[in-house]
Design a protein around this nucleic acid. Structure first.
Length: 118
DNA sequence: GTTCTTACA
DNA sequence: TGTAAGTA
């Protein structure tokens, strides 16, 4: 299928699909005219990509763990140590982000309370 | 008409 | 990420 069809089936814009390719997440073949050709498997792969992005992983991390996911897997699950490790690592990363945000919120709370009293 | 690349906001 | 230009 061509890019617009994959976009239709996944809800991902052609722009984003080209970006995924640029980031090494998709490897579409090319027609003689230069058009990208995606197999039906790409639909599943894009769904995996979307799921991992939803989980907060950046494209670099996804590019590293995507090859670890078998093509016939429709429900993404940690099938290899690398994937499990990448997910655990991402969890650690976002935990740090949450802590920094919470600290920022505490500061804002103090500032807001100080404002209320003056 | 659709898609491609490149580039800018 | 959206959009525009100029092609194939």
């Amino acid at each position: 299928m061509r890019i617009s069809e994959l976009a239709r089936q996944t809800g991902v814009t052609p722009r984003a699909l080209r970006y995924y390719e640029e980031q090494g997440l998709l490897r579409p073949s090319r027609s003689a005219s230069g058009y990208r050709r995606y197999d039906s498997q790409a639909v599943i792969t894009v769904r995996h990509i979307q799921l991992l992005i939803s989980a907060g992983l950046n494209t670099m991390a996804i590019a590293e763990i995507l090859p670890c996911v078998p093509d016939d897997v429709t429900v993404l699950a940690p099938t290899c140590p690398e994937l499990l490790d990448a997910l655990a690592q991402e969890r650690i990363r976002i935990t740090g982000s949450i802590e920094r945000l919470a600290a920022a919120r505490d500061i804002l709370d103090r500032l807001i309370e100080a404002g209320d009293r003056s």
